[in-house]
């Protein structure tokens, strides 16, 4: 099989995230991803994956490949994306996270509603858990759990002081088993923005970095993206691309 260039945005929220707009339903997300020329997306809600399957279904027959993800929050307050080929694997991680979340219910009046929907966006039910919270598990444990569920662990927006691995923990934890990290660069950033970021966090020099939109609104989808050269669109191929093995590769940012 030949290698192809794949445009990807691996960090998109749906209406299951309390902070996402109500327009973030599967059908519209796929439509917007397709319009903005994305080949692959991952749906990553806060500490939950209940809408991932619906997004995969909604993408059937479209040009967009959907991976199932979760944006989990560690005990330290660090966000890590877990990216999976199948919704079931993401749900396996979800079970673990839910066993470690605080017992309090969500307060929609403060944090927003958390809606489980079907592929067309029809409302199924509210998720009443407090999803905007830390799971009682270290960042290392989350990474390990993601690996055990055959997922790809990617620390999210690492340079942010709000929930970014480097912002919160200052340094990359020794031996953390992640193939790449997501950096936050505002839309329109250039090579200079990235160079400056690498001065602030020198460890970014040696880490594989990707960009994603962290979209909470439709128009944000694909505004930040990364490019990989892969044979097919899967977690296994992504890992090869991040590692630069078997001809697969990740393009430098900016």
């Amino acid at each position: 099989m030949a290698l192809r260039r794949c445009s990807m945005d691996l960090h998109i929220h749906t209406v299951l995230s309390p902070c996402a707009e109500v327009e973030m339903i599967p059908e519209l997300i796929i439509l917007q991803a397709q319009r903005s020329g994305l080949d692959m997306i991952a749906v990553c809600d806060h500490n939950a994956a209940e809408n991932a399957g619906a997004c995969i279904t909604a993408a059937c027959g479209s040009t967009v490949k959907v991976l199932a993800g979760i944006e989990c929050e560690s005990r330290e307050g660090v966000h890590v994306l877990g990216i999976f080929d199948r919704a079931e694997n993401a749900l396996q991680l979800q079970d673990f996270i839910w066993s470690r979340l605080p017992a309090e219910p969500n307060r929609p009046e403060f944090f927003g509603a958390q809606m489980v929907v079907d592929a067309s966006g029809e409302f199924i039910r509210f998720n009443d858990r407090m999803l905007a919270a830390s799971a009682d598990a270290s960042v290392e444990e989350l990474v390990q759990r993601i690996r055990e569920a055959d997922g790809l662990p990617l620390p999210a927006h690492v340079n942010k002081t709000h929930a970014g691995l480097l912002g919160v923990l200052g340094l990359m934890p020794e031996g953390l088993d992640v193939p790449a990290v997501e950096v936050f660069l505002p839309p329109g950033s250039d090579a200079q923005t990235l160079a400056k970021l690498r001065t602030t966090f020198s460890q970014l020099e040696t880490l594989k970095c990707i960009r994603s939109s962290d979209a909470h609104r439709l128009e944000e989808i694909g505004q930040s993206r990364s490019f990989v050269w892969v044979e097919s669109r899967s977690v296994g191929e992504l890992e090869l691309a991040f590692d630069g093995r078997l001809g697969r590769s990740l393009e430098e940012l900016c």
Binding site: G167, V168, L169, G170
Partner: peptide, 8 residues
């Protein structure tokens, strides 16, 4: 502080 980058 609970932000290690801030402490650094």
């Amino acid at each position: 502080s609970d932000l290690l980058s801030d402490v650094m």
